[in-house]
Write a protein that binds this DNA or RNA. Structure first.
Length: 322
RNA sequence: CCCGCCUUAGCUCAAUUUGGCAGAGCGUUGGACUGUAGAUCCAAAUGUUGCUGGUUCAAGUCCGGCAGGCGGGACCA
């Protein structure tokens, strides 16, 4: 573990996030011996690059001395209409392997939601929050999280309340999630206060655009690269991806570069045929400039990203094959 | 518990008053055009018409039963 002072740690934690609520509280957390950071995931048939954004941040926290708890939120997935519990639990097993493959070490706790969410003391808090939370507020918090349903279920308002009690039950100092979690997390901060429980620092990471240019990469839309996709699948998906020439805003290829390439290495190698200028290595800044002014062709960018991802995800594929 | 309405392709919906080969748009897939994708153009695929029984030469369509959903009523001695 690298020695850093608190400000350096804060900078490292905030890097690549959209917000930390709030930084002053984070400072207090960093004074603790072994603070706890957690992220909850609904078990999903495929773990993709969007999940990897938060996992990458959890790894950073782990390196900074945090205890990492990953909630395999089986009941949450169930409440969100993802299927029957026994199926969801099988998926959770698979997901745990995926998270380990992404490089979280053996000190990481993987906790199945149902292993503690049926405790009387847990239920008691859920009921208490149910009396303190308005229907509108609970539903609004689920806007970006609920699976679309023409006939919304009561389950959808129990969901954010449980997520709140999870933070208390798991004794977390940091709650990390994608930006779609924001409203639930803010509700949780208010509600934990009301329970007299510890209020965690909330950290939100940006959402990756889908490969089709859609605002969100998601399992249900099929516009993702899974962390255990084969070389052929990665190649095919990158080739099919949305990538407008010269456009660096909302461009999924640029986003992948900024999210996974440059936090991990200085330059990106792009192989090009001689007639298009030959191979080049670009820094973050050079890549943005060259792409924006048209010197870097989308197909070349794609090839660079594709080669990077194939290599970046190689350890994951190997781990998953065992 | 009672009454009414709804259920057709992955999605949104058509299918004439009066039963006659189940369709369109979007999406998907393939091709054309671009040194990528998208856009555009061309082409293709996809159905247990919620389930079930019946009437009929013939049922998405008419009749019965069931399920799910929506709305209302009743109950509130």
């Amino acid at each position: 573990m690298v020695t850093m002072n608190i400000d350096e740690k804060i900078q490292k934690i905030e890097e690549g996030t959209l917000e930390v609520i709030d930084t002053a509280e984070l400072k207090d957390v960093l004074e603790k011996d072994q603070p706890i950071a957690y992220t909850g995931y609904e078990p999903s048939g495929k773990i993709h690059l969007g999940h990897a954004v938060t996992v990458q941040k959890l790894k950073t926290l782990q390196n900074l001395g945090f205890k990492i708890k990953i909630l395999l939120a089986d009941y949450h997935a169930y409440l969100n209409g993802k299927g029957e519990l026994d199926e969801i639990r099988k998926t959770a097993e698979y997901n745990m392997k995926c998270f380990k493959a992404l490089g979280l070490d053996e000190t990481t706790d993987f906790i199945l939601g149902s292993s503690f969410q049926l405790e009387p003391s847990y239920s008691d808090k859920v009921y208490k929050l149910a009396t303190l939370t308005t229907l509108k507020r609970a539903r609004r918090s689920m806007d970006q999280v609920s699976r679309h349903d023409d006939n919304p279920k009561v389950a959808s308002v129990i969901y954010p309340i449980m997520q709140t009690v999870d933070m208390d039950a798991l004794d977390v100092d940091i709650a990390l999630g994608g930006m779609e979690q924001r409203k639930i997390q803010m509700l949780a901060r208010e509600n934990l206060e009301k329970l007299g429980a510890n209020v965690p620092v909330c950290i939100h990471t940006p959402l990756l655009h889908g490969l089709d240019g859609d605002a969100k990469m998601s399992s249900s839309k099929g516009n993702f690269i899974a962390i255990d996709d084969s070389v052929e699948e990665i190649t095919k998906k990158i080739n099919k991806s949305y990538c407008p020439q010269g456009e660096i805003e909302d461009n999924p290829m640029i986003e992948i570069a900024e999210t996974f390439v440059y936090p991990n290495q200085e330059k990106l190698l792009i192989k090009r045929p001689e007639k298009f200028g030959g191979d080049i290595e670009l820094t973050h800044e050079e890549l943005l400039n060259d792409f924006a002014n048209g010197e870097l062709h989308p197909m070349d960018l794609k090839n660079g990203i594709k080669d990077f991802l194939i290599e970046y995800l190689a350890p994951v594929r190997e781990y998953m094959e065992e």
